[in-house]
Design a protein around this nucleic acid. Structure first.
Lengths: 348, 348
DNA sequence: CTGAAAGCGCTTACAG
DNA sequence: CTGAAAGCGCTTACAG
């Protein structure tokens, strides 16, 4: 392995100068820089990350924490984030919580992340008070995506979940539906995962704006998954007269709903309309009407907001600066995408 | 930040002993170990990864390279691998190639990975000869999942793609189909991504075994995606009399095929049967018959084969030992899952 | 079983 | 703009 001394010797300068030249610091003359770069190139030199980190105190690495990488929203966000990070010279350490509480604790509460990364991105990760304390003591810059708990001084990128659910509900109202059900997730989750709460609120607000009272018997809780949508819908149908339309809190639940309806012999949209939120990769294949949210864009933007104050991974010390005014989440727009799963209710 | 000296002082031993005790090395007396652990606990001590790596030469990190994290197979593999790695004390560095050739080069050909990870996992990553040379000079242990290029001395976990496609084709033959089309991917990819080639071979072999000649006009190439399946099927339909059944090289292509058929006014399975390979999360929702492959299990097994020779991340030097007999890929079984997308052809 | 000392390969004040 | 020297926080022979 060639090391910095080899480069220094070949270029006829000190290792300090090699270090500066290679990192593009401005305090190196053009001629010297050229010589150093040539030497490094010739020797095929790559800096040792461990040594650089130990000496410089920066890791050039970002931790990205997601609940489940297999779900559409999270894999889409991670793909966009990965591209941005690597283009910026950062490595991505992936943490997939996967519902395992012990992993959550190990990642968030121990000093595990400390000394390991320069910054943290939390995607839709609900936090307990103890988690917040742990994160605060880590004293690292970070960003959150989607709802979940806000972390003091960390910016947040998300959509307006209330508005998204309102748009979905309004779409059904506009089509003439009055018996509109809602299926959502995480009933016994005491964590502050607010997405489903916000979306329920939007559903209820829009009904009320139309002069209607939300009917609790048409509002079923389950989990934020295909299976959850399936079960919630089955439960809904078991309760008696089916609704003419369903607002699902996410596309995956909507897909489960479509399956349950099919299994019950009901046609979509002739018997029951279904609208989701997300615009999942497969929404088109299924003809699912939905409220599209820009997942990749949220990832890219959050990555940018995270890295901007950090600068290049190996350029001088980290500026402790926090983005000012990051108390207001950045909200990205959503839009209604009408496909084949929604239609006017049948005439009585 | 508390460091190893603080622990040493509190425990009344040398830093060398702290290091040994904390890593569970056997050459520490039980009493000393207890004292050290208590001190570390009391001080909330966490080893500095950078320092440990620099001094010990191990990174406790594995690079996982996937083509596209947003696709079902890859996110499922990564989820399983992530769990295994973290449970074993390793970090996961994610590289999502995303079709960007320059990224492939940066990841595989430069010494980028060197000094950064202890081992590499390549998931369905095709390699050019130059990539193989670069990997060889990295001299790191590794493992490959799925087909793609074999790397000398690296074990490989996969399914038998030829057999999977044969089973899919036989299923259609058993139902009475004779006009069976095949859609697959990567037509102008000179890389050695062999999955689609193997699956085509299986399709053809099974037809021949049934005494039939594969009809080139029923074999369309596109890309390994939903969109690719859609386009390939549209192309197939444009060629004239539709087939009575389609073998898609993966579920995502099958989903695209279902969309194209629907758009063309053809019903599945009444007019055309469709069978895929994968057992994608959404195959059930779509009623897609398919050949299920164990994605998570391939990930777990590959992670285990990768880590076994490495031992715990901070336990002594890496043993250069390569699993013997790793020249034969480990093949995991697949199985036919019949749903609603396949049925006997209509009587003429 | 334990410790003193060297060394891992860089970066960073500091001085010039 | 550049260099000599200290130091980042561990692990590892080596010696006992």
């Amino acid at each position: 392995m060639t090391k910095i001394d080899d480069v220094a010797r070949l270029a006829g300068v000190s290792t300090a100068t090699v270090s500066r030249a290679l990192r593009g610091l401005p305090t190196v003359s053009a001629a010297t820089r050229r010589r150093v770069l040539a030497a490094a190139e010739q020797l095929d030199y790559e800096v040792s990350p461990s040594a650089s980190r130990l000496a410089g105190g920066r890791t050039g690495t970002v931790a990205v924490v997601v609940p489940r990488i297999t779900r559409w929203f999270f894999s889409t966000v991670v793909e966009a984030v990965e591209e941005f990070l690597h283009e910026s010279g950062y490595d991505l350490l992936l943490y997939n919580l996967g519902g395992r509480e012990q992993i959550r604790q190990r990642v968030l509460r121990t000093a595990n992340l400390h000394k390991r990364v320069d910054a943290i991105m939390l995607v839709a990760t609900p936090l307990r008070p103890a988690d917040l304390t742990a994160l605060a003591s880590l004293d690292l810059p970070g960003v959150t995506i989607s709802s979940g708990t806000r972390v003091p001084n960390w910016p947040c990128v998300r959509i307006d979940d209330v508005a998204a659910a309102r748009t979905a509900t309004r779409h059904l109202l506009d089509l003439g539906h009055r018996r509109i059900a809602h299926i959502s997730g995480d009933p016994d989750d005491e964590l502050a995962f607010t997405t489903h709460l916000d979306r329920r609120r939007g559903y209820q607000e829009e009904l009320r704006a139309a002069g209607m009272q939300p009917d609790p018997s048409l509002d079923v809780e389950s989990t934020f998954t295909i299976d959850g949508g399936n079960q919630a819908t089955a439960e809904l149908l078991a309760r008696g007269e089916p609704p003419t339309a369903i607002v699902a809190a996410c596309d995956e639940m909507a897909m489960g709903a479509m399956t349950a309806l099919r299994d019950a012999g009901l046609r979509v949209p002739q018997d029951v309309s279904v609208v989701g939120i997300d615009d999942h990769d497969l929404a088109g294949v299924l003809g699912l009407s939905t409220i599209a949210q820009p997942a990749a864009e949220q990832g890219r933007l959050a990555a940018r907001m995270l890295l901007d104050p950090l600068g290049a991974p190996s350029l001088g010390p980290i500026v402790g600066q926090r983005t000012p005014g990051c108390d207001t989440p950045v909200m990205l727009p959503t839009r209604l995408v009408v496909r084949d799963s929604t239609a006017p209710p049948r005439a009585h």
